[in-house]
Amino acid sequence: MLHRRWLGVYAAVFAAAGAAFLALPGVVTGLLSVPGAGASLWLGLAGSLMAVLTLLAWELSRDPAQAAVWRALLLSKAVSSALFIVFARQGGPGYLAAALVDGALLLHLAFLREAHEPLCAWEPRLPIWPVIRHEAFFLIFRDPASQTAFWLRHEADREGGRCQWAVTDKEGVRQGSWEEKPFAGFTRNGSKAAGPEGAWGLSWEDGPVRPYALVPRWLWRLGLAGSMYVTSAPAASFSGVVELGGRRWTLEGAPGCVGHLWGRRHGARWRWAHATWPERGLMAETLAAQGRLGLWRTPLVSTAALWKDGNLSLTSALGGPATEGGTWSF
């Protein structure tokens, strides 16, 4: 573990040096003003930074999935843009021009990261503290034979894990929950759980629709969305056995979906609906949610996904849904 301590020392030294540049610019300039050196010391520092940025960009061109490398590259451009704006108050328009250039680079790099960011359709996110405070994988599906609808959920937070369930049929809604080790029974292609109220063992085929994010990722990155939601298998087909509420169902090809939800906080309010018609090649999903920012609430944002004729369409808009006569429109 000694090497990790040394790296921690280096991090502290670099942070202190950067703080000194900002807090004591005159002192640092005096220390670096070596007689006869001219501008070479400053060019050396700038050249080393450009070498690091070159390496970061090259590494990302080879493997865009390196989150730490993205953070380092974006941090560099964000800090330089902010400092150029600060220096422009005293140094003139040249600093403002530099801020515009680095700001444009920052926006473009952020766009590139968004394009390459994995959706995290199946990977648990909860260990990333304090960014992630709650997480859940859930399954919804309908048994065509009995016209029974199921909602099964594996969820976890910093206090532990739980299984939740709800069954809806002609007799009404039955629901319950029990404690479990976080995501102990959830895998990429299956879900198992057993508790005092019943058990289930299911597998699924993903279907033709690729995963998508129903919460716009730019809202999540800006902190305007407290939770992120990805539909991992939008048009899945479920098979297996469910025993809940004193009843048993054997399923084969039950249509539904798998969803993945995680975040810092739950939404202030939301509405959600999902439907699939395998025989017609149709799938639709919609979400309207409002987040929290301290004491304030963000505007309501609605997102809809439609799979039709082999094509997936996604759209988002401000405002909420209006339900009239069993329909949901925007």
Rank of each mutant, 00 (worst) to 15 (best):
S302P: 09
L119Q: 07
F138R: 02
Y212H: 07
G207K: 03
A20R: 05
P35F: 10
R265A: 05
A97E: 14
G176I: 04
R265G: 00
V13D: 07
F330Y: 13
L306P: 00
G207R: 01
L45G: 05
L74P: 01
V27I: 15
T323A: 06
F138A: 03
K192R: 09
L83G: 01
R297L: 10
W220I: 10
E179C: 11
E197D: 10
G246K: 05
R71W: 10
A284C: 10
V34Y: 06
G259V: 12
A225M: 11
W272H: 11
Y212K: 04
A23I: 15
A288D: 15
Q147H: 10
G172I: 06
A193R: 02
F183C: 01
P124R: 00
V9A: 08
G267Y: 11
C163I: 13
A268T: 15
W220L: 05
L105T: 12
V215T: 04
T148C: 04
G281Y: 12
A273I: 15
G185H: 02
V167A: 02
A51M: 15
P278V: 05
A254G: 03
A110P: 03
R297Q: 09
V101M: 10
I85W: 05
P278K: 01
S33V: 15
G320L: 12
A16T: 11
W165G: 02
G310T: 09
L7G: 05
L119E: 08
G161T: 01
F14E: 09
C120Y: 14
W262K: 01
S33W: 15
S203Q: 15
V27K: 08
S302W: 11
V230D: 03
H116L: 10
A19S: 06
I85G: 01
T168K: 07
